[in-house]
């Protein structure tokens, strides 16, 4: 990783991404701000329609590949502006300096090539290693991610691995060039719960060894509680709250975050707490607060009409015009009920 000027390793400012819906370019992510410091593990939480995956792909420069376009904002990794087309440059390079792990390992690896070859490919392209060296390094990496009999498994094809093993291989591939930033897009969602626990342990392990920043995208708040140091909550294409994990879980500032914590089912519940309604489609986003329709604290005069701005207080940001006057419940209060 090139020597970054002091400052966050990832800086996203005012990001807007558009996709064609019903023939019209429509924003699916609007004015998102995000900052990740070196060595931090940031959890990005949101449900469907939140735009969390789209944001991840935008950071990786894969938006046009998905059929979308960047309609505004900047993305800086280690101080370098990521070109809109995500072109390779020598100062900052995808795969070498920042990498991604995807949700479904089976579809992210080429079924026609051995796993070892795919890991070695990155090493040869980015670090200029010889075939031999790259192959040896690949075996070492598989070992590092605790795949047993790495020197044999390196010759296997993706379909010969189980889901969990394949995800480990993907992580091995992603960290092969020791990137400063790793983005994991729902990396454990498709895995069994015991395997998920192992992968989270692995990520924690690898992160502390390499000192890299991790952006962990998920819909599961509990995983964030387990793994992350900071949290960013997204809803309907906007960042609605960011904070460090303790503060967020002790006392959230946004009603949606509170809702997410409250809807976690718990034994003895006669009725589950819900967030009524549905997530609105990007084509139906109102001008005012996008959560207003489902919010139990909304006041029409204040919340509708004008776009809600992000406000910052004590290293936390929140996008709610009533956050000053609300005292919301955290996870401890929930458990105590």
């Amino acid at each position: 990783m090139p020597n970054a000027p002091s400052g966050p390793i990832l800086e996203v400012r005012d990001l807007t991404v558009e996709f064609k819906i019903d023939g019209q370019w429509t924003p699916v992510v609007s004015h998102v701000n995000l900052e990740v410091d070196s060595g931090e593990i940031l959890g990005v939480v949101g449900e469907s329609g939140s735009g969390k995956s789209v944001t991840a792909y935008a950071i990786m420069g894969l938006t046009s590949h998905q059929g979308g376009r960047l309609a505004g904002g900047t993305i800086r990794i280690a101080g370098h502006d990521i070109d809109r087309q995500g072109k390779r440059s020598d100062s900052i390079r995808r795969g070498r300096d920042f990498a991604m792990v995807f949700q479904k390992p089976m579809s992210s690896l080429n079924p026609a090539y051995k796993v070892g070859e795919q890991i070695a490919e990155g090493l040869r392209v980015h670090l200029g290693l010889s075939r031999r060296d790259a192959w040896d390094r690949a075996i070492g990496l598989l070992d590092r991610v605790q795949i047993p009999r790495a020197s044999e498994r390196v010759h296997d094809y993706p379909h010969q691995f189980s889901g969990g093993m394949l995800q480990r291989a993907m992580i091995a591939s992603a960290i092969s060039c020791s990137p400063g930033l790793l983005i994991a897009d729902e990396a454990t969602t498709a895995l069994d719960v015991t395997v998920q626990a192992e992968i989270l342990d692995l990520l924690r392990d690898v992160q502390s060894e390499l000192g890299m920043a991790v952006v962990f995208i998920t819909h599961d708040l509990s995983v964030v509680a387990e793994l992350c140091t900071r949290v960013a909550v997204m809803y309907s294409g906007q960042m609605v709250e960011t904070a460090d994990v303790s503060s967020l879980f002790r006392r959230p500032l946004h009603p949606y975050t509170e809702g997410l914590m409250m809807t976690r089912p718990s034994r003895g519940d006669h009725r589950f707490a819900t967030i009524p309604g549905n997530v609105p489609m990007p084509t139906e986003w109102p001008t005012g607060c996008r959560f207003y329709d489902r919010c139990s604290y909304g006041i029409a005069d204040v919340c509708c009409g004008a776009p809600i701005e992000e406000s910052e207080r004590a290293k936390r940001t929140v996008r709610c015009c009533r956050s000053e006057s609300l005292t919301l419940q955290g996870i401890i209060d929930r458990k105590a009920q």
């Binding site: 626990a197 994990v245 303790s246 879980f249 401890i332």
Partner: peptide, 15 residues
């Protein structure tokens, strides 16, 4: 037991 132990705890360690 291992299944139950793998469930991520919704309360962060610090709390």
């Amino acid at each position: 037991k291992s299944l139950l132990a793998s469930i991520p705890n919704p309360v962060p360690k610090s709390l």
